[in-house]
Design a binder for these strands. Sequence first.
RNA 1: GGGCGUUUAGCUCAGUUGGAAGAGUGCUUGGUUUGCAACCAAGAUGUCGUGGGUUCAAAUCCCACAACGUCCA
Length: 951
Amino acid sequence: MSLPPIDLAVFHENGFIRKQCRITELWFWTADHDRTTCGDTTEDEYTFIGAPLIQGYPMRGKELKDAMRETFLTFFEQREHTRVAPYPVLARWRDDIHLTIASIADFQPHVTSGEVEPPANPLTISQPCIRLTDVDAVGRSGRHLTTFEMMAHHVFNRPEDGKMFYWMEECVRFCHELMTEALGIDPLEITYVENPWCGGGNAGAAVEVIVGGLELATLVFMNLEEHPEGEIELKGDRYREMPLQIIDTGYGLERFCWAAAGTPTIYESIYPESTTWLKDLASFSTITSQWPSLDLDALLGEMSRLNGIMNIEPGVDAEELQNTFLRRLDERGIKVTAEQFSAVTEPLAKIYAIPDHLHALCHMLGDGLVPSNAKAGYLARMLARRTLRLRDELNLDVSLADLARHHIEVNLGSAAMKQTHDGLLGILALEETRYGEMLRKGGNVINTQLKNVPKEATSIPDETLFNMNDSHGLAPDMAVNLAKKAGWNSVSVRTGFAAEMAERHAKLAKQAAQAVEAKPLVDGTLTVPSTQLLFYDDVQQQEFDASVLACLPLVGEDLPEGATHAVVMDKTCFYPEGGGQEGDYGSLSTASSQGRVIDTRKFGDHVLHLTDGPFEKGDLVHGSIDWKRRKQLMDHHTAVHIVGGAARRILGPHIYQAGANKSVEMARLDITHFNRLTREDLDAIEALANEVLGQVQRTEKTELDRKDADKKYGFDLYQGGAPKGSSIRILRIADHDIQACGGTHHDEPGQIGSIRIVRSSAVQDGVERLHIVAGQAALTYAREQDTLLRSMSELYGVPNIELPKTSQRFYNEWKDQRKRIEQLEAEIVRLRTSGGGSDSKEVDGVRIVIMEAHGNLKKMTKMLKELTLDKQNPTLAVLGSKEGGGKLMIAVTENTVAAERYDAVVLLREIAPHINGGGGGRPTLAQGGGSNPDGLDAALDAARAAVGLSN
RNA sequence: GGGCGUUUAGCUCAGUUGGAAGAGUGCUUGGUUUGCAACCAAGAUGUCGUGGGUUCAAAUCCCACAACGUCCA
């Protein structure tokens, strides 16, 4: 069974009839009875360009967006919806996506799964969203944006509980009223297209609202979930109804603005000041003034109309696309040459893309994101770099920070941001510096990579281009530009290369997507009641009595040494590993037996005590935790929170926890920051953290409903990761740090004693790892450092304070002496071989030196250099050493009679067997070694014999 | 989270099947000319990122770690 037709009274009342589109074959409702297409097809052109369909909005830009948004939200407020403030664009409450891609994303997964109540019901919202999938099309298509606001009205119905607010009929009626009454759109321009929606395991009927050829809104009625035995089939999958029935709508704010403005592209509607400013900076008027007869607005308008119906896929060949455009523009009476077309549209596309990219960038950084080369931070860097490239291609003489400053002034106004303006601009300045550095290095990269490519080549090998893009950040067209500057004058990017590269990246991504699921510790599922957690009531409790509900043999792979069984009890004060805090150790005992608890883990709602032996179901046990260990873990865990708060206060609002680990020896806290931390930074954080220890008497622990927690504290609560349940534990250390955290914490921070930040290291760009010791571990650390220093100072025989100076002196002396030794060794060789001593004989004009030396091959090399460098004195030198199993080196003076007569390699091969060895080299220099140093004399004798010398 | 790249003189970088550590620039000194400069000659500067391994022999091959960079999800 598929979905039934959507047949609503609101359609009939307004004179709409149901028809099937002759192109897409989708069913749609229209008031225009002659209409044969659904409105969103290759034949439905935009009708609003130059002829706005929404009246009464003469303003542009931010003012227009503000007015349109207000109209929408007020409309729904007046119809019993509660206005909800927008969520951040960084989806910190989710672990599956980085960015908020739709208004419904605000409520996934906790609200849409039914676990948590929505903040209001029904509600209306205008949610800033960022989608980077179409980033290539932004500016070029006339309508694509990476950042937009999705206006919405959402309803979460629960018919089984008698909570049914409204469904299709009312929803479509609201929409129709908004369109026709509030915004004055002619009903003849509206089509409602039936097009079922599915994604992420859910599905439902959906209506696309097309106005003037542009999809303005989508109304989704999400009431199905994927299930193998479901009755309803959609696009190959089976679905069944679910208890929660959600209305998910999305109205594109910017598209409404466009329909109200009727500008040639969407960008002039929403970023008019920016496009004007950038056109001016890019001297765009000097381009157009070349052809005074060219009607720019007509051209752009036609292009937009064409863009709307020509589905431009990413990676489509630019030249082919241009030809299609020219042909179709010609059909419409717009005469433009290929040269004019690209001269006008190429810079314009860049000018349009810049404010869009800046908007996304300011939103992301404003939410506290730190640019990086990984994770969400990479998205910000990518946008920053794209913007910089666009700027450079347009030859704009303006910094990225200035672009952003202008954008904030004009398009964001006084909108609240988590990051400070100075912080944001500072980060962008840093990004620009890094981009410049990358470009500067690009020149060298080109020369290295193209070493084997002839200068007259017309293309660069694919592999090289891929490599330069992936490893060095040089996009193909940048690489080609640099290559041209470096002397490869005729290279160009081959047609279709960009598409191939995208395909290749997609393939790699697919391979990487295969996630590895951890194996469970025990087989099957536990049906016994969930474990009562005593440690939340009293973190100081060390002992308890409980009864064993189950005892299972351990089967997983990642098990601690000696653990054999998992014991489940009705209650426990053992803390299971979680939130970066390691599990508790300790013991369990009954009247007759005792077992060690080697680790504690979480398994659903149960706590597994990993023991070194079995217990019987029904046993009454006495549990006792290793308190010293627990106390240390608590010291570290609470310290991590305090240090995190201190770092935020010292470094700025962008500091966010990116991960943490607390063991007995030390704790690690990963924080997001745009620079490497100096020791001064660490000292300041450490000082503040210790100050907090003294100032805050008690920590405050509360348990709040998720909905209330979000409202009260915002999303910075979820530093430790997105929580699963509806009830949230909150640890509050005065106003210093407030976080959702399930770990065990001190009631009095003072119990920690002291906190030391040992050092910082880089986890990845944009994430710094702080190594922290607290409490007893801090003392242990101090003692270890002290011991280390003492042993050093005893070794040198100087006080601690002198150590750096002394080791510097030793290092310098070592270097000096090494150099001196080399000089002396050379001197020895000179002395031994000069003046025709017994080590040196002459045979037919060639000096023959055969002697035993000392030292390794490197030292003998120096000697040989002395001996054979002088062309005036042709020499054959054979040196042998007994070091390391015996070494032999032979050299002859190059380009002399000696080299003609003797081959070092041949001679070496002849004599090397005496020391059981081998070797090789060049005819003028050979070296080898063996394993029989005692044969050295025999080897040297053999050499003498070979050249005709004998004793 | 995954992939890739880089690390050699103060700086920018070469370094071929493993076999004598290099260039350009900068630095020092001398010469020529002296308005900066330019030119000529000589010279100094190296833990070849760190730690292991293979080998007679490692900047070079293998492994681990670190730092830096980059692409993608």
